[in-house]
């Protein structure tokens, strides 16, 4: 999947990926696609939960060896 912005949150633990995600979201325009990399177990549920809570669209995730790529479309 192609993305406009990539945010590397590997090595971070709760709540840092969500905090970084919220900070990044503020810098983006609606309709852009953000690719977030994370390797903490909690992110698997936290990223979709953040999307539901904030109204941004969760497009899915891809396993990539030691980390997971999460794709979000900003609304």
């Amino acid at each position: 999947m192609n993305s406009d912005v990539r945010l590397d949150c590997t090595g971070m633990v709760c709540p840092q990926p969500i905090v970084e995600l919220a900070k990044q979201r503020r810098k983006m325009d609606p309709g852009e696609i953000l690719e977030l990399w994370a390797d903490d177990e909690g992110a698997k549920r936290d990223i979709p939960a953040w999307c539901e809570q904030t109204g941004n669209e969760f497009l899915g995730s891809e396993e990539n060896g030691s980390f997971v790529k999460y794709f979000i479309r900003t609304v």
């Binding site: 709760c14 709540p15 969500i18 905090v19 995600l21 919220a22 900070k23 953040w50 904030t54």
Partner: peptide, 11 residues
């Protein structure tokens, strides 16, 4: 602080 930042990050 985890709950506070998480909630603020979630809008």
């Amino acid at each position: 602080l985890t709950v506070a930042t998480g909630a603020a990050a979630s809008g």
